[in-house]
Amino acid sequence: MNEIVLKPKDHTRISLEAEVITPDSFAGKSLDEIENMMLYQGNRSVRLKERFDVSGSPCDTAADLRIIIDGDAPRTKRVGEKMSCGEIVVRGNIDMHVGAEMTGGKITVEGNADNFVGREMVGGLIHIKGNALDYVGGTARGKMEGMRGGEIIVDGDAGDHVGNFMYGGVIKIRGNVGQSAGQHMRGKGTIIIGGNSWSRVGCEAADGTILVKGKVHLSTASLGYGCIGQVVKDPELGGDVIEGEFYELRADMGYEPKCGIAKVYASVGLNEHILPGGRTSVPRKGDMPVNRDMLPYLKIYHEEMIVKGGKK
């Protein structure tokens, strides 16, 4: 695999828009041509060599090309936008829209990423080793179709609106997520959350699956606890079997059944607070914030659910 290394030179406050940094547009170009590609900064345009030291071995086929951003690029937007093959490695932080609308290939970010990771992506793999901010796998404003395929893995935490308007693909967050995860999910997408989920999980979701291994904070009454009301053991989601017992719940009772049923799986062990009379335990450090106690009002009976799940 041929590598092209871009070393960021200096940090400017005004973001660079670097949608040309993709294997597709680098393929078939000499180093000199790559150095002279245009980036946008504010209302000016700059040559790539003014912001990055370019080295490495170019090649003709995009699929054999690996672009390495060797350092921190916290103000470089749109890296890997619309890429279809090849690989991008970022050895540091990256700004918004990394891997937006990508159709294939692989992006690895070793630091953190800003908003809109994998916005409207169709295929490929994005791996964020740090944290990601809001709208992971989401949409641009006003668009009704989010992520359609591919996979996003975030090793740290993610912000709000993970998988907004998601139609397909898999998002795996190892840490906690903010509010409204999986809101407006419309297709067969899957979101797996390793940590806790802040309020409004799966609100207005018509279809799709959300699994929360940690706590589910209830600040929407519409999580249909008791509607499906069963306990599922080791569900298979996103190609993996996830160990443990989970309540299977309906995400949005307001939605008409004909749209499909969005499901939320919440782990049995950590979600006792959703049961009648259950109080949230004292929040630990790193736990999701608990600001209001709306939880003990749910009338679901743990025993009944276990029985139902057991029969299945």
Partner: peptide
């Protein structure tokens, strides 16, 4: 959301 649940003929499961 609770209003929507009632409109969609689900009962309110909370007190």
């Amino acid at each position: 959301h609770t209003f929507r649940e009632i409109l969609n003929s689900y009962d309110v499961t909370h007190e």
